[in-house]
């Protein structure tokens, strides 16, 4: 996701790993099928901001690596 240009949209296909953190991501509503949009990247590979439905969250790029995505726009 952090490689995408700002404004890109992707669909969550599935998770490649299951632990407390990916469970938390799913509890936040990042479940398979959800469309997410890359809103911003902090400089120097810092955190990224994504938007999905009514939520906006920031996380570090490596923390989203277990999310298998399909770019749709």
């Amino acid at each position: 996701m952090s490689e995408y240009p700002i404004g890109a949209t992707a669909r969550i296909l599935h998770y490649t790993h299951h632990d407390a953190f990916t469970e938390r991501l799913r509890e936040f509503g990042l479940i398979p099928g959800t469309l997410i949009r890359l809103l911003r990247k902090a400089p120097f590979k810092g955190p990224i901001e994504i938007q999905y439905r009514h939520s906006r969250i920031v996380l570090r790029p490596e923390e989203i690596s277990h999310m298998k995505l399909e770019r749709v726009g």
Partner: peptide, 9 residues
């Protein structure tokens, strides 16, 4: 950290 950086804006 058990819970990595994940924060709502």
């Amino acid at each position: 950290s058990k819970l990595p950086f994940l924060m709502e804006l």
